[in-house]
């Protein structure tokens, strides 16, 4: 969900671009972290953990904690809390250590 009408802030967004998440067509703003675009669409579960297969979302949002690793354009272990969104990206939930595609 986007925040509209903030008392203090005016959000500068990049241009609207399409990307896919688990095969589904979604949109977001170019340059914002992939995690922010996913959150706008209510996607909180970003991966499943290595040992116990537990759902994980982001935690620190500044690229330090490794909770938000996803597969982006076939590359696993991308920190989506800091990786900027670009048009046409293919984003998938990572299971365990992920796969190189």
């Amino acid at each position: 969900m986007r925040i509209e009408n903030h008392p203090i802030l005016e959000f500068k967004h990049g241009k609207k671009v399409g990307f896919t998440f688990e095969g589904e067509e979604l949109s977001g703003y170019e340059g914002e972290p992939i995690a922010a675009a996913l959150h706008d669409h209510g996607v909180q579960v970003l991966r499943y953990s290595i040992r116990h297969n537990r759902p994980r979302g982001f935690f620190c949002a500044i690229g330090h904690c490794s909770s938000c690793l996803m597969e982006v354009d076939g590359i696993p272990n991308v920190r989506v809390c800091t990786e900027p969104l670009a048009a046409g990206m293919v984003v998938r939930r990572q299971r365990g250590k992920g796969e190189l595609r």
């Binding site: 925040i3 959000f11 922010a36 959150h39």
Partner: peptide, 16 residues
Amino acid sequence: YGAGAVQTLMNVYGVA
């Protein structure tokens, strides 16, 4: 979430 992470999401990127 970390409280700072929530702050980043809502105040920098405008997502609730």
